[in-house]
């Protein structure tokens, strides 16, 4: 169980409020799994606990056979865990290209004296990173926007750029926090299709938060349902659809 990734009873309390309560998730390599739940169910908090943006009150997070609970956010990211954000968090004043190539780990040593003196070795490696970033931008259909400042991009493209940036980390686990929020149904289904393709092309495991049940049901192999910070159901889309607790949570949430 949990071949690639798992959380073991992670819990987050803010003062008296329990945002996430004893949630355990397991992912096998190559899976595409969804996390759904009404507003305030603790989905984003769960992502924050997984990625290290926030610390668990109790419970542990395991990734690639290692206990990463004690690691900081950037250390977990470097192990191959990349994420996007519900409210877009690109580096707003950098170009699309720079947003992507900043993340490449291979380039991280490209600073210091080599950069200051513009040595041939530095230039070669810079050119290579640029090449790879451009390929990735093309893959998401953003090549024409490469030199645009991130905030100037249309909203939907910003969402795609966030995924592009996450992929530049060359992750094994990709966490998408409502990647299709604010998109129209056609854009949504295009995006979901792309995500599905990328998964097989890049050997990714994907965990995604989505509000829209229909889409999650459409592409996810398995689904976890959270409500009030607790897991209330897990299973295949068909099982989830039939689950009375889920129906209750969603209907209860709407009034």
């Amino acid at each position: 169980m949990g071949g690639l990734f798992s959380t073991k009873a992670v819990t987050k309390k803010y003062g008296g409020l329990t945002a996430v309560s004893e949630v355990s998730i397991d992912l096998d390599p190559g899976e595409l799994v969804g996390v759904i739940g009404p507003n305030g169910a603790g989905k984003t908090t769960l992502f924050n606990l997984i990625t290290g943006a926030d610390t668990c009150t109790t419970g542990t997070v395991h990734f690639g056979g290692e206990n990463v609970t004690g690691l900081r956010d950037f250390e977990r990211a470097r192990l191959g865990m990349a994420r996007t954000f519900q409210n877009i968090r690109l580096w707003p004043l950098m170009t699309a290209l720079d947003n992507v190539r900043t993340v490449y780990q291979g380039a991280r040593g490209n600073g210091g004296l080599g950069a200051v003196l513009r040595t041939p070795g530095f230039r070669r490696s810079e050119a290579e990173i640029r090449e790879r970033a451009m390929t990735l931008l093309e893959r998401m259909g953003l090549q024409e926007h490469a030199e645009l400042i991130a905030v100037d991009l249309p909203y939907g493209e910003q969402r795609k750029l966030e995924i592009c940036r996450a992929l530049a980390l060359e992750p094994t686990l990709l966490l998408l926090d409502e990647p299709a929020a604010g998109m129209n149904p056609t854009e949504k289904s295009d995006l979901m299709h792309t995500v599905d393709q990328l998964r097989s092309e890049l050997d990714l495991t994907v965990l995604l938060i989505e509000h829209d049940m229909k889409f999650v049901m459409g592409i996810c192999e398995r689904i976890y349902v959270l409500d009030h910070g607790e897991e209330i159901a897990r299973g295949t889309p068909a099982e989830i659809r039939e689950n009375p607790k889920v129906i209750e949570a969603y209907l209860g949430g709407s009034d």
Binding site: T51, G52, A53, R72, D73, F74, A77, R78, A82, R83, F85, R89, L90, W91, P92, L93, M94, T102, V103, Q105, R165, A166, L169
Partner: peptide, 13 residues
């Protein structure tokens, strides 16, 4: 520009 995002994308702020 965004320290939190940088940390979550592997940069040691």
């Amino acid at each position: 520009q965004d320290e939190t995002a940088a940390g979550l994308l592997g940069i040691n702020p």
